[in-house]
Computed example of a mutant assay.
Amino acid sequence: MSDDTSPTQSKASSSVPKSGRRFEGQVAVITGASRGIGLGIARRLNAEGATVVLTARKPEALSEAVAEFPDGTALAIAGKADDPAHRADVFDTIAEKFGRLDVLVANAGINPVYGPLVDMELDAARKIFEVNVLGTLAWVQDAVHHDGLKFRENKGRVVTLSSVAGQVPSEGIGFYGISKAAVSHLTKTLAVELGPDIRVNAVAPAVVKTKFATALYEGREEQVASAYPAKRLGTPEDIAGAVAYLASDDADWITAQVLTADGGVVTAGGGA
């Protein structure tokens, strides 16, 4: 599951590869980054040298998150991911302060309902699609078309957050899975359209231990993890490592791919 909320995790210096600071001098924006997977990604990219711009809905949580980063290496801009004015504010601020954008991580996502599709309120489905799919597309569109970011010139990289729920039916989160299937296809289509200047890939997690996914494992973590060949659930750091790889020059010949980060559960016959 991709998300923007989670319990406390380790600080930005954790899990940096021996290869060093692959994002030195680069600027990255991560949506939905006040907690959870998004914050984990911001920590990892920052630890490898990137100046990171974090966005999320709640200013207080976002300010608290940014406070942990070294001075001058992180910036918080609060707003709703599906709000055009917020996206314009983010990209105008990046252009003014840094004059470039190198990495866009479209992590923000929602799932406000749980239950069978047949009983789902259609307004809730529209909102999920608006944020998870159209919001992801809009962030990419705005980054590509903003002259002050030089996203194409910098050989920009986009990493979206999909989910294994978009690969196999998952009980109770059916429309969330549908939206993430759309994100996966959106990712591939954008990669074809934007190459060779911009690479676009996705990471599709299974259950990651965050507040967003609590309902999928709380009180039965050992039972849920038993279906995973890795015999554990994911962590934000697991997903951050995958995102950092796809956003780095180490993946320079990789685009239009969906990297499944699931501890092997889909291959073993499970799902989200």
Rank of each mutant, 00 (worst) to 15 (best):
A56M: 09
G72H: 05
V200R: 14
R57Y: 02
E121T: 02
E221P: 06
A191T: 13
I254R: 06
G135T: 03
K211F: 02
E221Q: 12
A65R: 06
V258I: 11
K80W: 11
A251G: 07
G49H: 10
G109Q: 06
G20I: 04
L259A: 02
V103K: 14
D92H: 09
A12F: 15
L134I: 10
K180A: 11
G38N: 06
V266Y: 08
S6H: 14
V105L: 01
V27M: 05
V16H: 12
R22A: 12
G195I: 08
R152Y: 11
I110F: 03
D92A: 14
V113G: 05
P196E: 11
S170F: 11
K18G: 13
T214Y: 13
S19M: 01
E68L: 00
I173P: 09
A230K: 01
R126G: 02
D71N: 10
D197C: 09
L104W: 03
A143V: 01
P229Q: 06
R57P: 00
G148W: 11
H146C: 03
D89H: 03
F129R: 07
T260W: 15
V192H: 14
F98K: 03
G38K: 00
A47G: 14
S6Y: 10
T214F: 07
E222L: 14
S34V: 05
T235E: 10
L75D: 12
I37G: 06
A181I: 06
D71A: 13
N154D: 08
A138M: 13
G234Y: 00
A244K: 05
G271I: 02
P116I: 06
V27R: 09
T8S: 05
W139F: 15
L117V: 15
R22P: 09
G40Q: 12
L39P: 06
A81Y: 01
I178G: 15
A240D: 01
L186P: 02
G99Y: 07
T187Q: 08
E171R: 15
E171W: 09
Y228L: 11
A242T: 12
G166W: 09
D71P: 05
V118S: 14
E237H: 08
Q257C: 01
G25Q: 10
V243R: 12
R22S: 14
D92G: 02
D238S: 09
A256Y: 07
Q257S: 03
K180I: 06
P205F: 02
D238Y: 04
D147F: 06
H185P: 04
R22M: 07
R199L: 12
F175Q: 12
G219I: 05
E222P: 00
K80I: 07
H145M: 13
T187S: 10
